[in-house]
Design a protein around this nucleic acid. Structure first.
Lengths: 355, 355
DNA sequence: CGCTGTTGGTAACGCGCGTTACCTGCCGGG
DNA sequence: CCCGGCAGGTAACGCGCGTTACCAACAGCG
């Protein structure tokens, strides 16, 4: 039914000016042009002809053909990134970071969506079709990025080129991965609350099984332990990772105790839940941070920066992870060793007005 | 100092299997392989050798080289999109829509960021460097996408290939563009409020000069006119396009009148301002939508879907604009005529709970 | 004068593939 | 017997470019 080729009616392309044209115009050989353009230092070209060639390039508006160059040089200067982020843009900053870094390295980042309609098989991981497409473009390395920190399954064919995982990790732990340091993030959040004098801290938890929840909670425990305190299991309530879930969880915590025993601070494991917690607190005539301090996690700008009062939260270092992913990939493709198989990236605390 | 080429130490690439390998393995000529792979119907290849070739492809794990194919066929099947969206992801759905549509068309969408550090000149428009890079890849068409509806300046070199603007337009109006129908959106918002019985409607306006404000306000006036009403200029207040701006504007409107004269509905020209308006309303002990109905614009999921009550708003059709952009580009590159130079895309009303 | 470098280039090959022109049987019809 | 036509291929060229091998002219030197 559908053709595999886009359309059969081949339109007339603008005939681009090639190196041969430049050579003719400058009265030299094509080889000389190639030498000048690739800036070969050991090649011997006189300053004079070098200038003539540069002029010809200018005058004709020559633009190199990246594809032909890649073919001849057997290196494409392309990386590929497979991601569901385009679809679920929560972590779009990963792409930004990777894109920027690749640009700095004079490389092109091909972005392939991982959840297309023609994808087959169980969508537990990142897709084969996208990987295949990227390999057809002869990318020199692959990145896989997930919207939230989790384990993924990477297609077999990815093993053909250097591969780095961002915000995710593979089950067997063979591939290098870049993930947020959830534990340190949880710790810094609770340390901030302790520093503000709060000792009775409620925790609004995510699905307890996901890496984010495990790590952040562990960090919270560490911070309390360092202060000689323990995490009261009663003060940890889980809910759906939404504003409604946060609202309900906050209600449960706030209504369970008489005002004197009530926690004076809430650590919400994501900003959406913090958003709901705000409502629960305000609804009870309490103020933030006067009566209840709130600290979030994720730094979803649209929420954290616009809540009233603005939400103090721990940021996920998406952009940095993206950049680090590309750097790691660059090291791998250059045959250099990398520091560690799993690199943890710190989650900085962003002070706003809710603590 | 910095080399123009990424790194000089060329690593050993995996030697990919080529069509020649397949041909040898199947005992036929490379031409035969090419014919089979490109599915040429007029070529005469017996079913038997056709099968032998397919088997060889499977066994060797042959993967076509997209770059070489593009070179030989003189068509790349690539489009390029230049956008600042990667950086300011508000409208990231444009990319998603374009990406999906391109994928359906079996084309690859190269995404180039338009606000890189090495960009030169006044950053009033979309960048030359990115365009140049994409043309070096021999993209067959270009898309330019902006995060918010506005006029842009497109580089000269973009004229070399078919070009379509998404969520923006060029000053001279020569290039085809896809933009949201702001006017219809404003009308549908106010119609919804009228339908709910509101006749005294406050408007929280954006910077009055931008296309979004002009169009949406005009639509609001139209809706009122159809109902035999006029827009009271006193009820239109402008503010910064933030939650704080919305809060302040809402306070001004709400506090200006005694309860009896107070508007019973607020049309906020974006969701962030609606978010602030919520606070102003709740602070005054009023309920949504009981005392004051609120309707937003933009449908920023993170806000609209998580506010309490959830915000009824008018959606910007980012994804659809992206897809339409690619479709328009496909028509252009195929030499087909396009419908109109400026295509307006409808902004659907999303009913939630704030009206 | 012959020999060796050095400077300033060029011819030619190959990267992987699409495409066109051509070639070789073989069969049927006149 | 010859000719035309068709099925089933193949040889060869070119896409735009990187790269290697080679070559001519000339200077210096013993």
């Amino acid at each position: 039914m559908a053709k595999t080729t886009p359309d059969e009616s081949v339109p007339v392309r603008q005939r681009g000016v090639t190196m041969k044209d430049v050579a003719n115009h400058a009265g030299v050989s094509r080889t000389a042009v190639s030498f000048v353009l690739s800036n070969r230092e050991n090649a011997s070209i006189s300053e004079e002809t070098r200038a003539r060639i540069s002029d010809a390039v200018q005058e004709l508006g020559y633009r190199p053909n990246a594809g032909a160059r890649a073919l001849a040089a057997r290196r494409s200067d392309w990386y590929g990134i497979v991601t569901e982020i385009v679809t679920a843009p929560f972590a779009v900053d990963i792409i930004k970071g990777a894109q920027d870094q690749a640009w700095l390295d004079r490389r092109f980042l091909l972005i392939a969506p991982s959840d297309q309609a023609d994808a087959v098989g169980p969508n537990d991981g990142l897709e084969d079709a996208a990987t295949e497409k990227l390999l057809e473009q002869r990318v020199e390395g692959l990145l896989y990025a997930a919207t939230f920190h989790r384990g993924v399954h990477v297609p077999e064919s990815a093993k053909e080129v250097p591969t780095v995982l961002i915000n995710c990790f593979d089950a067997d732990g063979k591939l290098p991965s870049i993930v947020p340091d959830e534990r340190a993030g949880g710790r810094v959040a609770v340390e901030r609350l302790l520093q503000a004098g709060h000792t009775r801290i409620g925790v609004i938890n995510l699905d307890p099984d996901i890496p984010a929840a495990v790590g952040r909670l562990e960090g919270a425990r560490e911070a309390l332990a360092l202060a000689g305190l323990e995490l009261d299991p009663e003060l940890v309530v889980s809910g759906y990772a939404t504003a409604d879930g946060g609202y309900e969880a906050a209600c449960r915590i706030l209504d369970r105790y008489p005002p004197a025993d009530r926690p004076t601070a809430l650590f919400c494991l994501n900003d959406r839940m913090a958003m709901g917690a705000y409502d629960a607190i305000k609804e009870r005539g309490l103020t933030i941070p006067g009566d209840i301090a709130v600290i979030g996690f994720d730094n979803q700008e649209l929420i954290a920066a616009y809540l009233r009062p603005k939400l103090t939260t721990v940021a996920l270092p998406f952009e940095k992870m993206g950049a680090l992913g590309v750097q790691t990939l660059a090291a791998l493709t250059a045959g250099q060793p990398i520091l560690a198989n799993q690199q943890l990236v710190g989650c900085p605390l962003l002070e706003r007005s809710s603590v």
